[in-house]
Nucleic acid binder design. Structure first.
Lengths: 186, 186
DNA sequence: GAAGCTTTTTGACAAATGTCAAAAAAAGAA
DNA sequence: TTCTTTTTTTGACATTTGTCAAAAAGCTTC
């Protein structure tokens, strides 16, 4: 689904706005495995995944920890870096060949100013992502490894085929050995 | 600090807007221990803590789990309930005598429409709260109980005096016995 | 299809954290 | 104060999950 179409599910998009969004956004393709944003770079792009799968991860003492996945019709960015204009602690990698739409930080800010109605979209989208994070916290707080895995199984079943065991395990906050054992006993 | 003053750190607030905000917001007081929003109620209020401390918590099989604390100059609401207009799974309780400013969901939506510049404030605030949640996830994902406690000690030292051990423990995703042991060995 | 990677599984054991119960300490109420 | 209730600490033990190492399985690439 295109970005404009996705956005129009939040608020109706006028023709001039649609034109502007198209004008300031770039389509890019990434190959499987490609690093799109590296650690210590400032992430100045907001990505919208048209096709494919991205993940954000970081290193904690040589251990790779996956922080998020973004699949079709989801946004992706190093949120902290993007918003706070600081170097990113995380790395964005394409886990599949991807078609992405890229929006630059400054063009997005200009868009907000030029088309104030987009502020609302920005707010609504941020709110919806906030709710997702909150749910993840509830899981990490007191659910067992197995429960967290089962929850993921039902909420994002396709992810289990598309990301590796190790990536999924660290996303759930467990080791891959533990996840492997959980999976074998179900 | 007043709400208007707090908001003006995000964006300059015009006189008419200030008036409007004052008009639609109500000051309320809550006594220590008071339940402000109960489970299964729809939470239609956004609170701004002028003085005191609130917590949001929920029950997971008879176990009380604290989900967040909000202290001076922070907002509080049952986010999911407020945004999705669904019954709340969490309970808001005053942990101290509080002075709160209360904004109704529908007046807030009207405010967004009447003063479009407030959309930006809404977005910026949501973004900043998103970043905080993200940081919490990083801690819950792979930090040990001790590391999480130490992080809280440095980021919100006053909380340790103001909330009970059990409340802090569940917020960190550990049992109070474990937290008690961590605390005694430091 | 063999050789060389990478990912997943398995095993043995260690460490962290949870559970349950009871004692001690602190806070509140009468 | 004294009594009562709540919170915190401590102990013994169970459970979950992690760690390290090696084997097995699955992919690539020539």
């Amino acid at each position: 689904m295109s970005l404009v179409k996705h956005l129009s599910s939040f608020i109706s998009i006028s023709k001039p706005l649609e034109k502007e969004i198209t004008a300031i956004s770039q389509k890019i393709s990434s190959l499987k495995g490609e690093i799109i944003i590296n650690v210590d770079e400032r992430c100045e792009q907001l990505f919208f995944v048209e096709k494919g799968l991205l993940r954000g991860y970081y290193f904690d003492e040589d251990k790779e920890i996956t922080n998020w996945f973004s699949q079709e019709e989801e946004f992706a960015t190093c949120f902290y870096s993007f918003i706070a204009k600081k170097p990113s602690f995380e790395i964005i990698q394409a886990l599949e060949d991807c078609e992405l739409i890229q929006l630059n930080y400054s063009s997005l800010q200009n868009l907000y100013t030029k088309f104030p109605e987009t502020e609302r979209i920005g707010r609504l989208i941020t709110e919806s992502y906030y709710i997702k994070l909150e749910e993840r916290i509830l899981n990490l707080q007191f659910k067992t490894a197995k429960e967290r895995y089962q929850k993921l199984t039902s909420s994002k079943p396709s992810l289990l085929q598309r990301a590796s065991l190790g990536q999924i395990a660290s996303y759930l906050g467990i080791t891959q050995e533990t996840l492997s054992r959980i999976r074998s006993e179900i």
